[in-house]
Design a protein around this nucleic acid. Structure first.
Lengths: 414, 414
DNA sequence: CCGTTTATGTTTAACGGAACAACTAATAGG
DNA sequence: CCTATTAGTTGTTCCGTTAAACATAAACGG
């Protein structure tokens, strides 16, 4: 929701700074100032002036000129500045806490994971642990001269993004909680809370090009949603089932940030009772627990165990996956009928089980989506999977930086 | 999606013109230039200059100064200009064609309805009839000195808004069709096609204050969604079931404009076969035909007949409504879980049957919406009902005018 | 009755930012 | 070495907003 407010000269700067930054960030290869000018419609003069500001603010960096291949003055390639401004993504989930620091180039510059079992534990202790991990990451990267522009804490539950409050997290057994103060983050790191599946969905937008602490050659992901498909539905299966609705690169949050609770969409009104109090929720048909139970596996098994059983031809495993795929496909079809999205990305345990689920899901979508004859819905495995919410959280911080660079630009000028 | 483009000085004008126009249009009472300045954050000088342009373009009008009650120079009240720029909403439905002309003040200045049965008729003839009706309306209001800024044609089917094409309209028996050329509208009236339920949903945003061709005293609707609830889900029941997802006053269209097809969301995968080819669609549980059949009424009956039967205590009618309400509530709950909206408006036959449906729907929402303990979902009757899509279409035209007034402003200056 | 107060609306100069055009820079190719 | 070509910079102009002074029109209060 673009807050309708008075547009001043400064707004032009703001908007054009963001425009230029996006042009540099989204270009397939490092563009010159002239290329940016051509792409944005701004004049070369204006672009030069804006790029200078972005460079001084540490948002954009110049590369050494490439050996020129054609006539004319060689261009100065521009890239997203590496290791200057970074975002911090944090995640507290049922069986681990994790943090990841990502820079503007999309590189993970630091990360930390700590396994645990946080079901029914004390929120103060668990969030204190996240805070400890986060502070360690912050001091680490700040010692390397980077600046942490903000933090996002991903939680598996209903999160009121307006007030940064957790309403309820059934899988943690928590409710009504203000998590941020418990983290003890430095005051100059503005933090927000978000839903885990939402942030994980956001991470799919720009699959990291380089991973690790050393810059390496770009390894473009093949099955990454390329530019143009910046609208999709990301579905993440685990204990619960969450989703992210991403439209034109922006997350759908709804009025409070409670959007995407696909796990509690009804499959069968007469179905089994769900922890949420209702009956026949998707979670009861295609959640991890339901899957393992139907496959006859112990509840401590992993999605990999189930995948192996299915690969080995275990009939119960295959039946469980067929049934879950049907339920998932039914709900996805309804969602697509409502929202007219053209791509579904499967994440979490569904990414692991994709081989067995995708055919069923795809068939169900083809049969039930009214518009599928004219625009078939694509079903793919999500390109980013491990601790995706931390990546998404960090990227969300950086997105905010790129969308309104003037704060940093102003600061750099002083 | 705000197309990211270079911001020039002119963009400031554009944006601030729209800002001022909205401020005038949305104010509870005619505001002065100073009030607009205060509300928008612009200076009085800038507002004056912008208002002058809007007045000259025929978008805003000055009223005679009210007798002042307090000290200071009396204010000049500003209002949306009546009877200058108007929008034309057209609708072709199964049993009628209709057209409505609405001005910027929200007043219907001309309308025409012609009953008929267009099921399985020739599209060329039916659309020709709409065109005839439309041209008559245009010449009528143009003779009165008004200017038709554009037209919207509402159709009950899948409409590709990008290409103004009708993909399929099951209830009309039509498919793959470019309707606009068949209307024969004047070239200076830019027209677009849209889904009927989508436009009807848009009409709920600003219930018309005055109806008829003579300006009368404002009759504010009590159950109108006041300002602040410009986000809601509108559901329209008829032969088919359509919906409009309205967020912050804007319609959710999806990638192609096929959003809101709630009628084909699955209620019961094992249910009866639907015309769309799938099974157990909501339309088969809560559509008009299903309702009448379950109530034991002839298929030619109206919603009013059913309402009367229920009022009289007819057990079959009551059972039919209970069952439909359950199905509707289930699907709405899933929708709210996905989208986190806080209001549902019932339109079409559901408005007529509201007394019998609302309790069931509300109970289902309370039980199945995960977030309902923290933000109960409101269920209300849609304030605009008769030929709502024509009103919504006309308003959509005018919305476009207000959002980018510079075209008209430029023209007025020449 | 007339100055004072108060609020509305208009005029003026100044400022900030983008466009435009002319310029310099750096290279390939003949 | 000269020309064509492309990249980036510099100074000017134009445009829209702001800020502040000014004009206008009423109520208020002696």
């Amino acid at each position: 929701m673009p807050t309708p407010t008075a547009a001043r000269q400064q707004s032009l700067r703001e908007q054009n700074l963001a425009l230029v930054a996006r042009a540099v960030f989204d270009a397939p290869r490092p563009p010159s100032r002239a290329a940016v000018a051509h792409h944005t419609g701004l004049t070369r003069a204006t672009v030069s002036s804006l790029v200078d500001l972005l460079v001084r603010a540490g948002i954009v960096a110049e590369l050494a000129p490439r050996a020129p291949k054609s006539a004319g003055r060689p261009a100065v390639p521009l890239v997203a500045a590496p290791r200057t401004i970074v975002g911090l993504g944090l995640e507290l989930n049922v069986d681990y806490v994790a943090g990841r620091v990502v820079d503007l180039a999309g590189t993970t510059v630091a990360e930390a994971v700590q396994p645990g079992d946080f079901h029914d534990t004390d929120p103060t202790a668990a969030l204190g642990l996240v805070g400890q991990l986060a502070r360690a990451l912050v001091t680490d990267v700040e010692a390397q001269g980077m600046r942490v522009a903000g933090a996002r804490l991903a939680l598996p539950g209903l999160v009121d993004v307006r007030h940064d409050r957790l309403q309820v997290a059934p899988n943690l057994g928590w409710s009504t909680l203000d998590p941020l103060p418990l983290l003890g983050l430095p005051d100059d790191v503005p933090a927000h809370v978000a839903n885990e599946a939402n942030l994980a969905g956001l991470a799919q937008l720009r699959p990291a090009r380089t991973v690790g602490t050393v810059d390496t050659v770009d390894t473009a992901h093949d099955d990454a949603p390329g530019p143009g498909t910046s609208s999709y539905l990301y579905v993440s299966g685990d204990v619960g089932i969450g989703a992210a609705i991403v439209v034109d690169g922006e997350l759908w949050l709804g009025r409070h940030g409670w959007g995407g609770e696909i796990g509690h969409v009804v499959v069968d009104p007469a179905g089994t009772r769900c922890r949420c109090g209702a009956t026949g929720c998707l979670e009861q048909s295609a959640g991890k627990a339901a899957l393992l139970r139907a496959a006859g596996l112990p509840s401590s098994s992993t999605a990999d165990d189930l995948a192996r059983a299915a690969d080995d031809g275990d009939p119960r495993a295959l039946a469980a996956l067929a049934s879950a795929g049907l339920a998932l496909g039914t709900v996805l079809a309804g969602t697509i009928n409502l929202l007219d999205l053209d791509t579904v990305l499967l994440g979490g345990i569904y990414a692991v089980l994709a081989d067995h689920l995708v055919p069923t899901v795809r068939a169900e979508l083809d049969a039930r989506v009214l518009a599928s004859p004219w625009a078939p819905v694509g079903v793919r495995t999500a390109p980013v999977s491990d601790y995706a919410a931390t990546t998404g959280g960090a990227q969300d911080v950086l997105r905010a930086v790129v969308e309104s660079p003037s704060a940093l630009v102003e600061e750099a000028r002083a």
